[in-house]
Design a protein around this nucleic acid. Structure first.
Length: 300
DNA sequence: CAGGTC
DNA sequence: TCTGG
């Protein structure tokens, strides 16, 4: 199938960085500058030039998602309606530190992910590293997802439904797949959602204000403040949320010398750091955080 | 010790 | 606390 294209500047979207910077764990660089992954139960290939985003899918959209064109799916996923250059200007003018240290890393965007994939992937993220998380998520999809076909020798699977992760045998299977203590978190959270809510409950958290959505998420086993904030930012449209992890904590100590005395991230410190960056960077603070974080994690 | 949580 | 580097 031929490549199709969307007008999109590389300063608005840097595909490589955005796809592998630790938001989503399922994209792979299958050829230089070419990315393969699963989105809306379709296998996608993506690449870009300076002003175009190219895409193709393994199959045409199935009936279930035919109400959205594939172009709409991508525009929604990359949130292309958000003018990133304008935001960089704002962050640079409001924050000298951003301007000098982060503003040259253009095109780093927050994806608008599916909440189910986002939540269960980030339950895996605690006390863990990106390469191991990616392997775990892949094995979870192979074991509990449905096959979406084969492309260039690679099999692809949908992200598992909450129902499939709620079954009795799941914890033991995940432990065999190397999930450690996170196996129980995943199974218990899935079961809690199916027993108290429904498969669509997570999506509906998009309609709630940040604080309510966060406290709902934190009722789940294995979901603390940091994971809840990641889900709020990356799939529930809370663009001003800054998840505070060890890296953000490192950055925060430069901005907030008063907090240097704290050895660990207590709830008070967590909120102080998050609030600080939210006030500094404004409505899209979570997006600015991802740009800054990228610089730290990859040491550019 | 790694992008925490119970 | 699981597990891999």
């Amino acid at each position: 199938m031929a490549w199709r294209k969307i007008a999109c500047s590389k300063t608005e979207l840097d595909l490589g960085v955005t796809l592998i910077c630790g938001q989503s764990f399922r994209w792979k660089e299958t050829a230089p500058g070419e990315w393969t992954g699963v989105l809306k139960n379709l296998v996608w290939n993506l690449k870009q030039s300076d002003d175009l985003l190219f895409y193709k899918t393994l199959e045409e959209s199935p009936a279930a998602s035919s109400d959205l064109t594939q172009e709409d799916i991508l525009k929604d996923y990359f949130q292309l309606h958000v003018n990133l250059s304008k935001l960089y200007e704002q962050w640079s003018s409001d924050d000298p530190n951003f301007k000098s240290k982060a503003s040259s890393f253009r095109g780093v965007r927050i994806l608008r992910q599916d909440p189910v994939e986002n939540l269960f992937s980030f339950i895996c993220s605690s006390n863990n590293n990106i390469s191991r998380i990616s392997g775990m998520v892949e094995r979870m999809c192979e074991e509990f997802g449905t096959s979406l076909g084969e492309y260039e020798g690679l099999h692809h699977y949908s992200f598992p439904s909450i129902e499939s992760l709620a079954k009795g045998s799941v914890e033991q299977k995940l432990r065999k797949l190397g999930f450690g203590y996170r196996a129980k978190y995943i199974n218990q959270s899935a079961r809690f959602i199916m027993e108290n809510h429904s498969e669509h409950w997570l999506h509906n958290l998009r309609k709630l204000p940040y604080n309510e959505a966060k406290s709902e998420l934190m009722k789940l086993c294995g979901v603390g403040a940091k994971v809840a904030d990641c889900v709020c930012l990356m799939s529930l449209d809370k663009n001003d949320v800054v998840p505070v992890d060890t890296h953000v904590w490192q950055i925060a100590q430069k901005y907030l010398p008063s907090l240097r005395s704290s050895k660990t991230i207590t709830p008070q410190v967590y909120n102080a750091v998050g609030n600080h960056f939210r006030e500094l960077w404004g409505e899209y603070a979570g997006w600015a955080h991802s740009v800054s974080l990228h610089r730290i994690v990859y040491n550019f």
